[in-house]
Write a protein that binds this DNA or RNA. Structure first.
Lengths: 242, 242
DNA sequence: ACCTGAACACCGTTCAAGT
DNA sequence: ACCTGAACACCGTTCAAGT
């Protein structure tokens, strides 16, 4: 059974918090939150559970680290509207749409992210995730000409909308996936739409009236429409004269 | 040990899905998601796990039912703006603020709700939770004079914002509680604010600039300010002439 | 300082058996 | 139809022991 020189050439790199978090993200991407287990993490990293606990306090911290890593990557890509030279390069509105879409796309690429963001922000709002997002949005809020005493409220409103909407998008994508390999999101939205049309007309007139729109809507477009609603409201409060 | 007539008068009511869900909500309220266990549920209801599984498919379904029950209660109270007589009774803007606040308050009364809403909507968007919220908001969106082809987008934007913001509010309340029994949310916000002020000035200029506002802000006010931002944006799109 | 791996307490879920 | 409760597979976490 050659317990010896097997795989001697490709020496396993030393365990590190970084490697553990990376493996965690991969497991989460591959099979969701329930797929992240110390057992499979242990196999994947070819160690024992004790080794992992040396680098990471517990599973909650591991999930937080995974969330933070992904958010950091999402917000960082594209340098948040400030390009190398330092010129503004885009209108503040576009900057906000940009950050929003990056977070939106991140939740699409990592379906576990949305629920995890809610949990992380909720259990540990003093953590690193909120500042990352706030900062990504905030620079543009300032550029928008919002008076300083409205900065926090404005940036928070945008952040809350983004997180809420991104979560809902994952919902649709994931549920479509759950319908089967050959089903697409159209099939799934059709199912939801049909269910809504079957609701009690007395109790759910609006939802029924809107069922058709739910079936044909584009998530990305709808997401941006919501951002624009907020932008309009924000700009109405302090008309830019420049 | 008198196995007999003990508690014969207060005969245990028959088990039912309703009783199970009620007990689940109580456990969740008392000790969070980790406090809801088939073991303690079993003790509380004086049965075996098999009995519970007769009424409920699994833990996920139980969590979904608990979430739905709480949302139903929150949205129903106050009859969603339509009083007995049938008169409008309030401006549509106030109706929206009303529904929003009810959901906001519900997440405050049931700290597990926000994260659970994200999970439920995400795993099962065809469920009952989304229609309930949509309907509560939708009636007022219609009354606002939004053209029909904008109904879904508008109501969805409001729902997403509400869910995102409510989640963040829980965050602050819970974290304050975690600081200790005598700590209030002011103590907690102070801690977060201080942490933000310690961030790298180059990486986090906005978050640092906003740290003081974070310390003194009122969650409820900020929540409503966001709703109003959206309302302004919505009304700007289709000026009411009435 | 970092890692091993057996052991522990606890979890959701099943199922043959009862009434 | 509804309930019992022992049993199963699996989970996060600990810790004495190694290097």
């Amino acid at each position: 059974m050659a317990t010896r020189t097997r795989r001697s050439q490709r020496r396993t790199e030393a365990l590190s918090r970084e490697r553990i978090v990376k493996a965690a993200v991969e497991l989460l991407d591959a099979s969701g939150e329930s797929g992240l287990t110390f057992r499979v993490l242990t196999e994947r990293l070819e160690t024992g559970p004790g080794a992992i606990y040396w680098h990471v306090a517990n599973k909650d911290e591991l999930l937080a680290a995974a969330t933070d890593a992904v958010v950091a990557g999402a917000v960082a890509t594209g340098a948040t509207g400030i390009t190398g030279a330092g010129e503004p390069s885009q209108e503040p509105e576009d900057g906000i749409r940009d950050v929003a879409l990056r977070l939106f796309d991140a939740t699409e690429a990592h379906p576990w992210l949305a629920a995890q963001l809610a949990t992380q922000l909720s259990r540990n709002p003093g953590g690193t995730v909120a500042p990352r997002i706030l900062e990504g949005i905030g620079r543009h809020v300032r550029a928008l000409g919002v008076p300083q005493d409205g900065w926090f409220t404005t940036a928070s409103a945008l952040m809350h909308y983004i997180l809420g909407a991104a979560g809902q998008n994952v919902a649709n994508t994931e549920s479509a996936r759950a319908l089967g390999p050959e089903a697409d999101r159209g099939d799934f939205l059709g199912t939801v739409s049909a269910a809504w049309k079957r609701l009690d007309p007395d109790d759910y007139p609006f939802t029924r009236a809107v069922a058709e729109q739910a079936r044909t809507h584009d998530d990305r477009e709808q997401f941006l429409a919501g951002v624009d609603l907020l932008l309009t409201g924000i700009n109405a409060g302090h008309p830019r004269t420049a």
